[in-house]
Design a binder for these strands. Structure first.
Lengths: 198, 198
DNA sequence: CGTCTATTTGAATGTACTCAAAAGCGGTGG
DNA sequence: CCACCGCTTTTGAGTACATTCAAATAGACG
């Protein structure tokens, strides 16, 4: 994986939503950096600066928040071709509310938040792109939220493995439990129940 | 309340996030329509077209989804100076996933989704505006989601009345229960408990 | 005043949590 | 190659929180 291959994947990802002119591509060619992340390293870290956004080239990531009681809650997983970012308004302090950690060695295209802001000013197509994908993220989370308050963990588990088949090969079970909003013990019991019904 | 007063409020709302040129204002002056909604009427309706976005001038709204079992779940309430819209990707069918209903007589500035898309193309500042407020909505929902999976209903109730003091005077209790993701009976019991502890 | 809806109260049930401990699994060093 | 360590998953018993179903009370609106 090298820089120009990463830029090309990034370009393809954006082109799925908005048309990009060659001069637009020139603009972000230099602003995005390729970076390798070792397993278990962080792109941003709760309570710290959180000034980087990333586009996943390879590897699986988890974005999570650690609450006052010390429990971690997975907000989402990110796979190749996904975007990673913390868009928190964390009061006056400008610290991240979430942490992003790789589950395995990973390559990202990363960009500084300030530079991203500048880039969006210069390239209206990108502003449009991020408006569109943010709307999609919001729509997805709205449905997940409704699913969470209207059904039990069994339904949420079924929905997840249907929506993301193969996720159980990529992500350890206790983190899937965290994503579903339940404890690892509960997920284990649940799966036992489901298997016994075959 | 007349059209130019509505446009003025809308202009002020947008100006809080992005600078607007006089010619930008000219652009949407005619695209936004003032409309009065009687109590209990809808801006968009689950399963139907859902082609209107709105900006609340007066009145309180609820946006909710009705699940397969027939239960309604409040996604959010909207007050004056808030935006209303359904941004669902509902598969191939282009129908709304949510309904928006007024709790009282209300005035909105409304715009057709197609016209809005055109407007965003023409006015980059507006594209930027909607990117920013969508990010904020996402950030708010992320926190609400985490609160929902990490705490019990008492904590969520306390958080709500702290964040929106006076909401209990505007919204009936069973709809607050729905927003919290619990049944009206549970909220009633909860409040009794809380009162007995004073 | 009567009807319709919202709220309260009660008893029984279900779902997931807590605390505790055992079993499984993967990686590392001897 | 095996033994050990740390981490993940499983299992168990008891508990907390919110639901279900049912009925009574209170409030709002015409």
């Amino acid at each position: 994986m090298d820089h120009s291959a990463g830029i090309e994947l990034l370009f393809q990802n954006i082109s799925k939503r908005v048309p990009l002119e060659p001069q637009d591509k020139m603009h972000f060619k230099d602003l995005f950096k390729l970076q390798k992340f070792d397993k278990k390293s962080f792109l941003f870290n709760q309570g710290k600066s959180g000034e980087w956004n990333g586009f996943v080239l390879t590897g699986t990531w988890r974005v999570f928040h650690c609450d006052d009681k010390g429990s971690e809650h997975v907000l989402y997983f990110a796979f190749p071709d996904w975007w990673l970012g913390d868009m928190t308004i964390n009061g006056s302090e400008n610290t991240a509310f979430y942490s992003a950690q790789t589950l395995e060695d990973s390559y990202l295209m990363i960009i500084n938040k300030e530079q991203k802001e500048q880039l969006l000013m210069q390239v209206p197509a990108l502003e449009r792109f991020f408006r569109i994908i943010t709307e999609r993220h919001l729509a997805v989370l709205q449905k997940r939220f409704l699913l969470t308050i209207s059904t039990n963990a069994v339904e949420r588990y079924k929905e997840l493995i249907q929506r993301s088949p193969g996720i159980e090969q990529l992500v350890p079970q206790h983190q899937i439990a965290s994503y579903l909003g339940i404890l690892p013990e509960s997920l284990s019991r649940m799966k036992k129940q489901l298997n016994s019904k075959d």
